[in-house]
């Protein structure tokens, strides 16, 4: 029996050391990555996760927002809300809001973006003009519409009335108020969509457009079969964002009607706000907030599912 003591070759040693140093390098890099991520992660936990958990907890209590103690009331807040006809008015208005925003501003945005594609010299100016309502504070936009358009004395409504037209200011009309408010919000939003869609359309390969033109496609066919498939991801993303924002709608409703008259323009945002800051019923407000988040969550899941389906194709 012979005993042979083999010493590892230099190459093998180098290889092992290489593996070790690579592992050390990876470990170090992972730690650095986590450290770099930490501030954003911490911020997210503090401003998103913690308030989210607090809201969920509060929704099962009668917390009045004043003290640090609350009574656990089970699902009473949800039962009260589901038995309140105003909740269904608000939910219905939020759904109307989604449908309006998924059609009118999207159609306007796509149409305008398509037209601006051909305006190579002036489209920057147009984009700035279209973006102006979007960059103005909602309170400014609301004041403009209240004073210049809807005002029964001095506004467009007043002007038409003075000329003998029997016109009722739409914000005061039970059937029209939600559309009158949504109209202002869409007016402020559609220019933003135009800019987004235009940006996405400009990423379309020129060759595809030129090929379609050579094939004799008209403007609508080019839009339908070339641009539209190319901006599908943007359309999808903005669609989901619209659904989420629509269930969070608050500012224009609060500024223009505060949900009135007779709750006809109530949305879940204003419904929750009244519980919190008028009635000291933060528990109920939190419950409404959870319901609002549920719809946003559904939209997010649909988006994620569609995105994954696209990737797997």
């Amino acid at each position: 029996m012979t005993l042979s003591l083999k010493t590892p070759s230099r190459n093998a040693l180098d290889a092992r050391q290489g593996v070790r140093s690579r592992k050390t390098f990876h470990r170090r890099r992972t730690i650095i990555n986590y450290l770099l991520l930490a501030p954003a992660l911490l911020l997210s936990i503090v401003v998103v996760v913690v308030p989210g958990i607090l809201t969920a907890v509060a929704s099962f209590t009668d917390w009045d927002g004043l003290g640090f103690s609350a009574n656990f009331v089970g699902t009473d807040n949800f039962t009260d809300i589901f038995n309140d006809p105003t909740f269904y008015t608000a939910l219905g208005n939020n759904i109307k809001w989604v449908l309006l925003f998924l059609t009118i501003p999207v159609a306007l945005g796509l149409l305008t973006a398509s037209l601006l594609l051909r305006r190579k010299k002036t489209r920057t100016l147009y984009q700035v003009i279209y973006l102006m309502p979007y960059v103005l504070a909602p309170v400014v936009n609301a004041m403009v519409w209240l004073s210049i358009i809807y005002n029964p004395h001095g506004g467009v409504v007043g002007y038409l009335r003075d000329r003998g037209m029997s016109i009722e200011p739409p914000l005061a009309n039970l059937d029209m108020s939600i559309y009158a408010v949504a109209g202002v919000d869409m007016w402020h939003y559609w220019g933003f969509l135009t800019v987004i869609y235009l940006g996405a359309m400009r990423q379309t390969p020129v060759e595809q457009v030129e090929a379609a033109m050579v094939e004799g496609a008209n403007a609508f066919q080019i839009f339908r079969h070339v641009y539209l498939p190319n901006i599908r991801a943007t359309l999808l993303l903005m669609g989901v964002m619209i659904v989420i924002f629509s269930f969070l709608a608050f500012d224009y409703v609060y500024l223009l009607t505060q949900g009135g008259p007779a709750h006809s323009s109530e949305v879940m945002g204003t419904y929750a706000y009244a519980f919190a800051f008028s009635s000291f019923q933060f528990g109920k407000a939190a419950a409404v907030g959870l319901i609002m988040s549920f719809f946003g969550l559904v939209a997010s899941f649909v988006y994620t599912w569609l995105s994954r389906r696209d990737l797997s194709k």
């Binding site: 607090l54 907890v57 209590t61 640090f68 103690s69 609350a70 009574n71 656990f72």
Partner: peptide, 16 residues
């Protein structure tokens, strides 16, 4: 109904 001291809510209110 159970009364509980909700320190979590307290933290939230304090932060707000």
């Amino acid at each position: 109904m159970r009364i509980f001291k909700n320190s979590v809510l307290a933290a939230g209110a304090a932060a707000a």
